[in-house]
Design a protein around this nucleic acid. Structure first.
Lengths: 357, 357
DNA sequence: ACGGTTCGTTTGATCGTTCAACTGTAGGTG
DNA sequence: CACCTACAGTTGAACGATCAAACGAACCGT
């Protein structure tokens, strides 16, 4: 039985079109070097044989795997990650548009997991990495940098020495826009429900709140708690029971905001009418009827595309070895800050839901 | 400048330990063929040089990429996919434990996306595929089967001709367990809030409900609506306003169940006390205070591990070409049904939350 | 002493592609 | 006419691993 006919190779395409290997290779990689008639002949042979080049052979020769490594962070039970699957989809999409693949792998957190990155490079399985979920004092950036391993992070380098390229969402600007929004609706006592000190993301968002309050000349009022609905509820209850209760609650996340919403409802106050509540992330259930939570939507897809674009640009530059330098100057901006957009729903503006539909 | 020292190769390890290429290769792939003293010498050379084999070269020679392709389904806006990131993490984890990688790619839905699968095989970029989100009349299975491309699906083949291996969660058994649970709590009028006819997953879950009702000798009462909180709310309101209102609502998903919960609350009935509500998926917010939704938790991680295990077994069998057949009989069970577990919270049993903590 | 088997190791060929150097032809320039 | 350049295409070598066959030595039984 003639099981498993092999895929066509350069050689078979060459034979079919009466030219040599290299000419077929040129048709694929540098079509302008081949005379148009020949090119057409080879092209049709490629199509009729349904040829596509063997990636392994190509990578072996060129020392480039045309793949990007991405370490999937462990799924934390009972905490939804509103970002991950969108980001993963975005980088996979952007990569394939440029002929790259995304290689997934898992690694233990902390320094123990770093070997995984090095091994993939040593195996020539990937050309570089996309990082996500960067934290304060993340070891990965410096470690990769030292070894000259290309990478781009989704999430700032929160360390002092900001080394390495990153793309991030401007949480401060987002929260400031939220404060402006509720201020514009007439609110003057605007509180911020945040995370404990020391998380890069949380401090960034808090910073935007403080700056906006100062700019608008309204007092600031900050509560802190962990990322949970229960804490959101507790923080909101405490503030609403205080002497001069806030009329707007700007929250560091949708989860916290949902807790706050429940606290508002429990006091028989109408969200949006009596107390405005704003979340962050625009998670799927922010839009659910019954919540209708105004929230900041992160441009995750754009972030993914940008990460890939920057990484590939970096790889190109590395790839061109000999000859004069690619660009005389230093590399262009290695950091990109994207602005989240405020999605207004009835938790701040009861008119909003009617208008949206 | 001596930039970019190359990674060590078999040859360099061989030179360092005074043996030939092939011996080093044997130390890695078939250590028992090498005399212990030699093996030790080579091993130490491998470690001191920090050698790891070039995957591309190996794949080129062996015609096996040791990678599994996975097509990331597009993220549907405003609908959370409680399964995807857990599943992706699980397959990546299980694959790396066996020296395999997971290669992500995206493809348009429907027949247009099939080329992507074929191309990856032609490029020798992957050895096979893990599928997810199988639907009724999914073209992919038959198409891959025809071409002899190895795959295992997470999700049944809902077509008539059940071709191809799959792993799935037994939705019928899960829902039946939920019905048993509320029946055991004394409920006799138990309704099912389901999806429109024709979705494989939805019909499976409904089937479990009907079977359990018949077995227990209680009447069945079915409502159907699309996957949304609003529809869940509508269905529950309709039933609760009927002549003989149910006292238990078993729902096809957590989203529908959340709508039902709100409908219960709006009628000033206490969930768990007056009306029991059960969801499906055990999404993160089922556990949130304020919902405390009893739900069926899918063993996604186990499903991912099983998919990978079955796929690799299939690949091994394919890989061993010559010689007598690997196993004389037909392949063992190509389908695996995993049972979801019922997580009991106060939406059915008010005591539950106290006990759990 | 001889052929046979086993064990440990080496050697040459090969996977499919790209790189670098080369060949031959045509056209332009002094 | 000699020379240089540009163009179109070919050829051998290389990337780093594994496969298949061969090798020498030791051991064995007759």
């Amino acid at each position: 039985m003639a099981t498993g006919r092999r895929s066509p190779t350069l050689e078979s395409v060459a034979a079919a079109s009466g030219v040599s290997r290299q000419t077929v290779s040129n048709v694929i990689n540098a079509p302008d070097r081949v005379a148009p008639p020949t090119r057409a002949r080879v092209q049709s042979a490629i199509e009729s044989l349904n040829y596509s080049p063997n990636r392994m052979a190509r990578s072996l020769r060129t020392r480039a795997s045309r793949a990007i490594g991405f370490c999937v962070p462990p799924a934390v039970p009972n905490r939804l990650n509103p970002v991950l699957d969108r980001f993963v989809h975005a980088i996979a999409d952007a990569a394939s548009a440029r002929g790259f693949h995304v290689l997934l792998f898992t690694a233990p957190a902390g320094p123990a997991g770093l070997d995984g990155y090095a091994e993939l490079m040593a195996q020539q399985a990937v050309d570089g990495f996309a990082l996500s979920e960067t934290v304060v004092n993340d070891e990965r950036q410096a470690w990769l940098m030292e070894r000259g391993i290309p990478f781009v992070a989704f999430g700032r380098t929160w360390n002092d020495d900001d080394s390495g390229a990153w793309v991030d969402v401007d949480g401060a600007a987002g929260v400031a826009a939220a404060v402006d929004h509720v201020h514009g609706l007439g609110h003057r006592r605007i509180a911020f429900l945040g995370w404990p000190r020391g998380s890069g993301v949380g401090d960034d968002r808090l910073g935007g709140y403080l700056a906006a309050c100062e700019r608008l000349g309204v007092p600031s009022l900050v509560a802190r708690g962990t990322e949970s609905m229960a804490e959101g509820h507790a923080m909101a209850s405490r503030l609403l029971g205080g002497p001069e209760p806030p009329t707007a609650l700007v929250c560091v996340s949708d989860t916290v905001a949902l807790g706050a919403l429940r606290a508002v409802a429990r006091r028989n106050l109408a969200p949006g009418r009596d107390v405005a509540v704003v979340g962050f992330d625009d998670t799927p259930f922010a839009a659910l009827p019954g919540f209708e939570l105004t929230s900041l939507s992160q441009p995750i897809e754009e972030a993914g595309r940008t990460v890939v674009r920057m990484l590939l640009k970096h790889l190109e530059r590395k790839g061109s070895r000999r000859g004069e330098a690619h660009e005389p100057g230093e590399p262009p901006a290695t950091n990109v800050l994207l602005r989240p957009t405020l999605v207004i729903r009835s938790s701040t503006d009861p008119e909003a839901s009617r208008l949206a539909r």
